[in-house]
């Protein structure tokens, strides 16, 4: 099973197990290409439900210092969108079935070509795309291509989102809704915002999609507490930091985060 269906199935399985889905983010090329492929494998083996595979971009305006520095280093080592797709292909060849979505800024996807991306996604088993600088009412042609190819396209919501934006995301998000826990950029934070419960309740009144919460989650304790109210938790920067030490360190943190959700 691939594409949107595989994403939906994962949330159903997690729900049946009465836990939130664990969704790590990790960029290809950090600390280098080969290690990052091993890290994607380690994330799968640690029990990840979906992996968001990051595509490094020269101007990552939604990212905090940790992911900026890691993706900058990846670019300096020559990482391209093609490498990111190839990394997923390699992980698939190793027999890993965990759903994977490519997460990246829009311009490199435009340069690659939407149709080409959809074709390669179906060939190698990329299950969807997340594009932080493409709000739900932009990029109609990309949205149409992904829908036709039956691939996921989660949209973002934020604490600032108005009822009309929530309705739009509820109409358009494919797979899940990515709820940004705080106004701000990516990066580890120590507290869980008070307004989160209210945000989630408000979204649930109009959206059928599962709600995964990201930005700022770094510890198993935070994961556990947000996991009680959300359908999924997304962890990026904390795992990227661990990535500097290699696959084993990432595995250990991911394993603890995943099991904090049980």
């Amino acid at each position: 099973m691939h594409g949107l269906n595989s994403i939906q199935a994962v949330f159903e399985q997690a729900k049946a197990a009465n836990r939130a889905a664990f969704i790590p983010y990790y960029p290809v090329g950090y600390p280098d290409y080969t290690t990052s492929v091993d890290i994607l494998q380690a994330l799968a083996e640690a029990g990840s439900d979906i992996i968001e595979v990051g595509v490094p971009f020269s101007d990552p305006l939604a990212d905090g210092p940790t992911i900026q520095a890691a993706t900058q280093q990846a670019l300096e080592k020559g990482t391209t969108p093609h490498h990111c797709i190839e990394a997923i292909a390699e992980v698939r060849r190793r027999g890993i079935e965990t759903p994977m979505v490519l997460m990246g800024y829009l311009n490199p996807f435009i340069a690659y070509g939407f149709n080409q991306l959809a074709i390669e996604s179906q060939q190698i088993g990329i299950d969807g795309f997340i594009v932080p600088d493409m709000p739900a009412d932009e990029g109609e042609s990309f949205q149409a291509v992904l829908e036709k190819a039956d691939l996921a396209l989660p949209h973002f919501l934020a604490p600032t989102s108005s009822p009309s934006r929530i309705r739009l995301a509820a109409q358009k998000a494919r797979g899940y809704i990515y709820l940004v826990s705080v106004t701000g950029v990516t990066g580890a934070r120590t507290t869980v915002p008070d307004h989160l419960r209210k945000n989630i309740a408000e979204i649930r009144t109009v959206a059928q999609q599962p709600i995964a919460v990201g930005f700022g989650i770094s510890t198993p304790k935070q994961a556990a507490s947000i996991g009680e109210i959300a359908d999924g938790i997304i962890v990026g920067s904390a795992l990227v930091k661990a990535g500097a030490e290699g696959p084993q360190a990432v595995y250990q943190l991911a394993h603890r985060l995943r099991h904090a959700l049980d």
Partner: peptide, 22 residues
């Protein structure tokens, strides 16, 4: 109304600031 000049323009920014742009 969506900020397009023919095929150019629009709002390609994170969702968090969309309400501020509105």
């Amino acid at each position: 109304a969506r900020g397009y000049y023919g095929g150019f323009g629009g709002r390609f920014v994170p969702e968090t600031v969309i309400p501020a742009l509105e």
